[in-house]
Design a protein around this nucleic acid. Structure first.
Lengths: 349, 349
DNA sequence: GGGGGATGTCGAATCGATTCGATCCGGACC
DNA sequence: GGTCCGGATCGAATCGATTCGACATCCCCC
């Protein structure tokens, strides 16, 4: 491996100064067409691959990198199509701006990943919001990295891109109440970083520190619903929904409908119902949230609240752009839409 | 926004030279304990967040970033749990080395993403191998970025981490032949970048330019099997498997067993079979490849060839480490294992 | 007491590019 | 013919850190 050829080499070969050669590439100043051609020819000759991003970054103070902080393990957050689709929208929106996405797994509780403290990034995006007093936020603030939250909380004072979880859930509940349901079960997203799958008691309820979970629960309260059974799932995964679903349904007097806070959880609840010999929706109705396309549920179609995932990613990308432009992005709240499928129906008489 | 505090500020505050301050952080030279403490105290005082990665990178020529090139859209490659789990293993193995993963979506055919040409990275990993004469490889070579391939081809001369696709498939076929099957259908991964879902004819077969597809097909030939029906899927997705499955099964004299080249495709074939009123495994057997955990298939358990996904990610991380250490990583071929489930059985008499 | 080695600190070069101000040149206009 | 103007080019400073060689101290031991 010989030393990489630099702009200086190219300039020397072309017989111009380094500054002129830089101009030939960046085009940020007056330069004669012939000189430019000569420089580019020399670059071609030397197999020069263009100005190194490092030098540019150093001078400009911009690295062109957006750090995306995802939940603990990729395995967990990325098995969730919701994250993927948002991330996809984000990458698609960032790419044309010449920005790249650096994956930063938030470490296990307590230990901050070294990347968070060292990697150079222009902006950080927290894909799953933040806890109150989140050490990740503290570390980013200390480094002076502008940060954007997807899914709250607003209390942080940082720009937030989210959806109208609350109204969406309320609309779903209204629909179910219209069908005659009065006994609601609920399978929720995690309350915090602890990964437990268990019924929620009053003490646990006070520990609730996760924005989507909170908002979607608030939608129930808005319709004056107090669930007869409330179980916290350990993650938005089918397996976890199945486990939680058993806790909700395998009791003496089960609810007539189970609201799961995500579609994957709802899919798990469907499995649990089937395990218990319950027909859906005759014996129990099941609803989700997200509006994923889950072909393997066929011929069932999940009743759910659909959110615009790709749009959310794009809104995040837009917020990044604004932040880099020196603006202060406004909070965004995207609309959701109730989609009635075949997994909900009137309660058994 | 005030200007970021730099090492020079800290040094000034501590009353030492910049070089001494640098030593206090890096620990790469002799330094008195008292001096070090003074520097660190000054840093604390000034809220200095540690040496900037940019400056360090510039000097060392290392950015600490590993570029991971994934198929066109995240949406597509990341809906595939296979990619996710490998990526998870890779991130887990890179993190402790202080290396971060930069996502680089390989653009649509022909257009190279700007990131590939500009982003600074120490190593590139192609998660889904490369075509022959792949422009991505050419661009990376031109920039002098060391590259590792997951899933071949070996012909490229680059380090390859892969699995024993061929022997795994052959073992699966042997098992099916033992059950009495003679009429095989096959749903394959894409042959190249074109995303089509169609039966494969001789002309198309000559265009086959994708290593996993090729190897898994070779496993059939090893057992002297010529499929009665061979359909190329557009991607490793359930929907695509369903579409391809219909093409394979909805014919006058369908095969007695369908081998899908991935578990997701196999899940799609199961859906197609159900759509057509075929019982599995009584009317038709279905097998996959990957060994994913697909809870929603329950109570069915897919017969499949299981590959060590996390280990593959770790092997990639190890290859990265070796490459950065100046070694030449040896090719790795990880073992696979046949796992017989409930979706295969003897053919109908 | 002086020489030598170990230890700690500093200055300056360096990495690869950008960018501002200065310089140089030719042409146009008075 | 002199002056002025503007386009093209160049030099040098700059970004933030690392690192090497030089230098100053101090201790130990001969």
């Amino acid at each position: 491996m010989t030393a990489r050829t630099t702009l200086a080499d190219v300039a020397a070969a072309a017989g111009v100064s380094v500054s002129t050669a830089s101009l030939a590439f960046s085009g940020a100043g007056p330069i004669a067409e012939s000189t430019k051609a000569r420089v580019l020819a020399a670059a071609e000759e030397l197999d020069y691959a263009g100005p190194s991003a490092l030098g540019r970054s150093l001078r400009s103070g911009r690295s062109g990198i957006v750090g995306v902080v995802i939940g603990d393990q990729l395995r967990r957050s990325f098995r969730d199509p919701v994250s993927i689709q948002v991330l996809d929208g984000l990458v698609g929106s960032l790419g044309p701006q010449g920005l790249g996405v650096l994956l930063i797994p938030a470490g296990e509780d307590g230990v901050l990943p070294p990347l968070l403290q060292t990697a150079s990034m222009d902006v950080a995006v927290l894909l799953w919001g933040a806890h109150t007093a989140d050490p990740v936020l503290a570390a980013l603030a200390r480094r002076g990295v502008p940060t954007i939250l997807s899914e709250g909380p607003r209390s942080s004072g940082l720009p937030v891109v989210g959806i109208d979880d609350r109204a969406g859930t309320a609309a779903l509940v209204a629909h179910l109440q219209g069908l005659g349901h009065r006994r609601f079960g609920c399978v929720t997203l995690p309350f915090d970083g602890a990964r437990r799958c268990a019924p929620v008691d009053a003490a646990r309820m006070r520990e609730l520190d996760w924005t989507p979970t909170r908002h979607r629960l608030a939608g129930l309260a808005d319709r004056s619903v107090t669930p007869v059974s409330l179980v916290e799932a350990s993650a938005s995964l089918v397996e976890s929904g199945q486990e939680a679903g058993r806790l909700v349904l395998d009791v003496a007097d089960p609810p007539t409908v189970v609201i799961a806070q995500t579609d994957l959880l709802a899919a798990g609840v469907l499995l649990a119902a089937r395990d218990l010999g319950l027909r859906v929706p005759q014996d129990v109705s099941v609803a989700g949230f997200d509006g994923l396309d889950l072909p393997w549920l066929a011929p069932d179609v999940l009743t759910t609240v659909s959110q615009p995932l790709a749009a959310k990613g794009e809104a995040l990308g837009d917020a990044v752009r604004r932040l880099l432009a020196g603006e202060t992005p406004a909070d965004v709240e995207l609309p959701v839409e109730l989609r009635v499928g075949t997994t909900t129906g009137p309660p058994r008489a």
